[in-house]
């Protein structure tokens, strides 16, 4: 057994793995993080495909009034998370459908208004519940310490439900997301699917926020999926890649947070963003080679052959 004081990472993966799995609280954190990464990878892939990042972010912020509201009335926090995220999804979904003719401007105005109202409620609950102002940080930014086995089980349940949902409606949802007009014409209930997807997104976000905190759910939701979509246009490969990147991000984040004194949220967002930046840079290089390579390519082949 390694001592807590000497927590550090080496370059030997086997040693690091032993060290990370030596304590039950770290095992719980890794299990919860892995489940969250799988779910967020799948949901996030559809979210980025549907260009609903803003809705996803707003829904994740709904967890804040959920947590503080549950604290205020003395209910379990998980209930508050799910209730507020679910309600937010229904409101945004209904408004988006009703305002469809007015275009994305109106839809995003509604989403923004819902988000601000949710946060205002959260702040109100927080100030009504006196004396816990210091704990707003753990609600907003999460903590990987103190995740119980019960929470891991509950998370696994939500993740299984969410994956089952995508297994059932994945195909029509994909159709509706890629080409809504054609999908609607061939009898796919695009509007119903849109609301159902937002609801699934809300529940996934509510589960994730309990681990990563309200403000940082979004990193796991958007960055791995966006990276995967930059790398491959194929559905199956993209989904798998998004999930894999999410898992790597979570493990690296937990390991770095364990080895240093800085918060896990910082490491998770940084790792996830670096993957995205790398993918974007690689793509830019492939699509448009740097000047020295472009010049060589720009010459007609015959000229190049003559020079050689």
């Amino acid at each position: 057994m390694h001592s807590v004081v000497a927590a550090h990472l080496s370059l030997d993966p086997a040693f690091d793995f032993d060290q990370l799995t030596a304590f039950p609280f770290l095992v719980n954190a890794l299990e919860a993080g892995t489940i969250v990464a799988v779910m967020a990878g799948v949901v996030g892939w559809f979210m980025t495909l549907r260009r609903e990042s803003f809705a996803g972010h707003s829904l994740s912020l709904m967890a804040f009034p959920g947590a503080t509201g549950a604290l205020l009335v003395g209910l379990p926090a998980a209930l508050g998370y799910f209730a507020f995220c679910g309600a937010g999804a229904l409101v945004i979904g209904a408004a988006a459908g009703a305002g469809g003719a007015r275009g994305r401007g109106e839809e995003s105005a509604v989403t923004g208004a819902v988000q601000a109202l949710g946060l205002a409620c959260g702040f109100l609950f927080l100030s009504l519940y006196r004396g816990v102002l210091a704990s707003y940080e753990s609600v907003l930014f999460g903590s990987y310490l103190g995740i119980t086995s019960g929470q891991v089980l509950a998370l696994a349940g939500v993740a299984a439900g969410s994956l089952a949902f995508f297994a059932v409606v994945g195909r029509p949802l994909l159709f509706a997301s890629v080409d809504g007009a054609v999908a609607g014409a061939s009898g796919v209930p695009t509007r119903g699917l849109g609301v159902a997807f937002l609801l699934a997104l809300g529940l996934a976000v509510a589960a994730t926020a309990q681990i990563t905190g309200v403000l940082l759910v979004f990193a796991l939701l958007v960055a791995p999926a966006a990276t995967a979509q930059l790398v491959t246009p194929r559905v199956g490969v993209g989904l798998a890649l998004g999930v894999a990147l999410g898992i790597v991000t979570v493990w690296l984040g937990v390991a770095l947070a364990y080895a240093t004194d800085y918060p896990i949220g910082f490491f998770i967002t940084t790792v996830a963003t670096s993957f995205y930046v790398l993918a974007r840079a690689a793509r830019a290089l492939v699509a448009r080679p740097p000047a020295w390579r472009r010049r060589r390519v720009a010459h007609p082949p015959s000229e190049g052959a003559a020079a050689a």
Binding site: T48, F54, H57, F218, A223, T269, T270
Partner: peptide, 9 residues
């Protein structure tokens, strides 16, 4: 989304 998730972190 990606940029500002990182900025928040």
């Amino acid at each position: 989304g990606v940029v500002f998730a990182w900025i928040l972190g």
